[in-house]
Design a binder for these strands. Sequence first.
DNA 1: GACCCATAGTGGTCCGACCACTCTGATGGT
DNA 2: ACCATCAGAGTGGTCGGACCACTATGGGTC
Lengths: 234, 234
Amino acid sequence: MDDGSAPQKGTVTQRAIERIKAMIGEGRLEPGQRLPTERDLAAQLGISRSSMREAIRALTVLGVLEARHGSGIYVTRLEAGDLLETFGVVADLSRGPQLVELLEIRRVLESTATALAAARITADQLAEVEKHLTAMNATDDPEEILAHDLAFHREIAAAAGNETMAAILEGLSSRTFRARVWRGYQEEGAFARTRREHAAIHRALVARDPEAARAAAAAHVGEVEEWLRAQLGP
Amino acid sequence: MDDGSAPQKGTVTQRAIERIKAMIGEGRLEPGQRLPTERDLAAQLGISRSSMREAIRALTVLGVLEARHGSGIYVTRLEAGDLLETFGVVADLSRGPQLVELLEIRRVLESTATALAAARITADQLAEVEKHLTAMNATDDPEEILAHDLAFHREIAAAAGNETMAAILEGLSSRTFRARVWRGYQEEGAFARTRREHAAIHRALVARDPEAARAAAAAHVGEVEEWLRAQLGP
DNA sequence: GACCCATAGTGGTCCGACCACTCTGATGGT
DNA sequence: ACCATCAGAGTGGTCGGACCACTATGGGTC
């Protein structure tokens, strides 16, 4: 007799994670749907509540599940923002050459997103971009500048119409990541250059010129990339 | 008196995750280094072993830690491959319009990687690419074709010299992802077209022509992208 | 010197209890 | 009949302890 627990590969928790992931992949669990209780789930898979909790915690951190205290466990909407939140961890824990690689990726994606935005951005979205551009130029507080800088690019990424790309870029621009790289970059008086580059991006958006937008965004990220590369070299 | 446990935001497990992440970010824990035992860690943070285990499990799934039964808990190398393994989950759980967005991202990254590879690929790497190309054309078994197809692009991504980009592309080409999309795509007799496109990519690599390589790769992914878009439309 | 194995130490699993929070339905007043 | 209130059940969160499975180490044996 096969009781269905034949394989026995890996830890029981790992197997539980795969089982739940499979249930979602096969459509047996829909986005937003509520799961059985931890106790029931554990009983169904024949494992202890402790092990099941570890599996649930892992999937929670991955943005697949969401646990609401006192209410239950739910599948997230499974949208880009939910699943790619963990992408920020990569940016936060990367160092040295890996940071350059991440900036290289950001350059490629950011320039593409900016080009798409130039073709698709609405008047309202453009107004929002301008708001952050002027606010960024109206203060000398590095913290505030950084916040508006992030919002500036976030608005553009949103206007590109690819939520997944926007979510990845969000992770590649996470607060801690930017703070670590930009701290040194802007100490070299790069504020003026940054403002010029942002202005160029904005002009391209207003002109609805995708190629100009792509070039401006690539140059913008490329500047930081080259600076960081030089920092690591010698 | 402040006992240092003032904040109390979120669950204790979540706080433990942040603490360990911070330790790594601050360099107090180096890649490959061994951590204290679960029991010691729990005591240090003043939480139960159960909660600490959930934190460790979460970081294990994220590719930050690695638990070796009977030996101890270690920090991974923190390289792109380790941290981006979870990226495959996104591809596996995405559906509908989100799949198109992922293919759009793959088109951008794959074309960039292929262009870089055209400029940097070594003779050995090129030979490996050719091996998979011929093997792919020498069989009719869809499974085998898929395997060599994946390896073909994997070699090219590796030759591009950006490990992080290669790791992301790996996630975007995970077995289950490709299987889901390509099943339908190739049922329409797309084998011939796929072979032509792969040949074009290979020619560009041999000619060391980055722009031709970029175009060929973009067209290759774009074909699948358009097909999928059409599938979802009506 | 090489091999083997008892042993201590570590992560993996399970259990049971209790706490903190949420939701619901019965209660009582208007 | 309606609504505000609140006690109870149900759920996730935390804890402590026990035992199992595996690894690594060092001493003993040949």
